[in-house]
Simulated assay, not measured.
Amino acid sequence: MDHNYTTIPEPISCAGSINSRGLRSSRAMVFAIEQINNSTELLPGIKLGYEIYDSCDSLSVAVHVAFQLSGGLDPVFNTGDKCSKSGMVMGVVGASESTSTISMLRIIGPFNIPQVSHFATCACLSDKQQYPSFFRTIPSDQFQADALAKLVKHFGWTWIGAVRSDSDYGNNGMASFLHAARKEGICVEYSESFSRTHPRSRIQRVADVIRRSTAKVVVAFIPTGDMRILLEELSRKPSPPRQWIGSEAWVTDRDMLRFSFLAGAIGFGIEKSVIPGLRDFLLDLSPSKVAESPLLTMFWEEAFNCRLVKSEKELCQFYTYMILTVVS
């Protein structure tokens, strides 16, 4: 966004399609909170409230939210009629990206507000001297980097290319991987970086390096949003077949299946578990419940190709029945 510094900038607004993975994570958090609030054993006499913010995959939006949270009484909590409409922020869940998480920690960390991330994997966040109030429920990228190097060596690939996002996640993750790869006797033809905020010419250059390289194997330590931009650029021109090795952030994203040249891409995924009651909770979405949440409304309309208005609720319900029946 360009600013001329003569007028107050417009508020940042989200654009594009909704991140279904992030939505699932937020819904799982709501489920957990409801389970706690409905239990007489977990936190007796205490009710948890929450406010969900959409960072829009934007660092500036995440920083803005962090300033709001550090103000203490600003959020209005969705806690029901029996609870106060406002209260002190006792903890933060998120963000999904390492760079956004680090930026938020710089702001709320001095207030000793604990921050727990479900998806910020940068090994740098394990430094308790810098981030004493940070915790996470996902392993550090150090483990993934070592495993990826062993995976490449297992298949006998000793001449590879490397591409990463120019971010805390990409730079730290790739540095760990290259260090582990050298120990395994793996040679790297090139190591390129880019960011989705870079001009297209930069991304074109990275794509051309991949096309012209002699290495048939490419290791990519990139978050989903950046990876999608690179793949869209690669799909513009025919490219020699490549074996893609991916970090968990993008290699487990089903949206990547639309790029046919990714067929056979491999990597590691986080072990999944079955949470009793969660599936029923996620599927229990009537139009009235969806209408209460802008995020759910956006997801509903994208998934079922309809507008959620009174005159078309029956149409949306029909699509829901048909799609969920197929899935189940």
Rank of each mutant, 00 (worst) to 15 (best):
N4T: 11
N4R: 06
Y5G: 00
C14K: 13
G16R: 13
S17H: 11
G22M: 08
L23A: 13
R27D: 06
F31R: 11
Q35Y: 01
Q35F: 01
N37Y: 05
L43A: 14
L43E: 12
L48W: 08
D57I: 11
S60P: 06
V61W: 03
Q68C: 09
L69A: 03
N78R: 03
N78C: 01
D81M: 05
C83L: 09
K85P: 00
V93G: 09
V93K: 10
G94I: 10
S96T: 11
S103G: 09
I107N: 14
V116P: 12
S126C: 02
Q129I: 13
Y131F: 15
F135G: 05
I138Y: 15
I138D: 14
P139N: 12
S140K: 00
S140F: 02
Q144D: 05
A145R: 03
L148P: 02
L151S: 10
H154W: 11
H154Y: 14
T158G: 06
A162W: 00
V163I: 12
D166S: 14
S167D: 04
G170Y: 05
N172G: 00
G173K: 01
M174F: 07
M174N: 07
S176E: 14
S176R: 14
A180M: 04
K183P: 02
E184W: 02
G185K: 02
C187P: 00
E189M: 10
E189N: 05
E192Q: 12
F194R: 03
F194A: 04
F194P: 02
R196T: 09
V209S: 10
K216S: 15
V217D: 03
V218S: 04
V218H: 02
V219K: 01
V219E: 01
V219S: 02
A220K: 01
A220D: 01
F221P: 00
I222M: 07
G225S: 02
E232K: 03
E232R: 00
E233T: 15
E233M: 12
R236D: 02
W244A: 06
G246V: 10
W250E: 01
D253I: 10
M256H: 13
L262D: 11
A263S: 14
G264C: 12
F268G: 07
G269Y: 05
K272R: 15
I275N: 10
D284T: 12
D284A: 15
L285P: 01
S288N: 06
E292I: 00
E292L: 11
S293N: 13
T297A: 11
F299N: 03
W300C: 13
E301V: 03
E302W: 06
L308N: 03
L308V: 04
V309D: 09
S311V: 10
E312M: 07
K313E: 15
E314M: 04
Q317K: 09
F318Y: 05
Y321C: 02
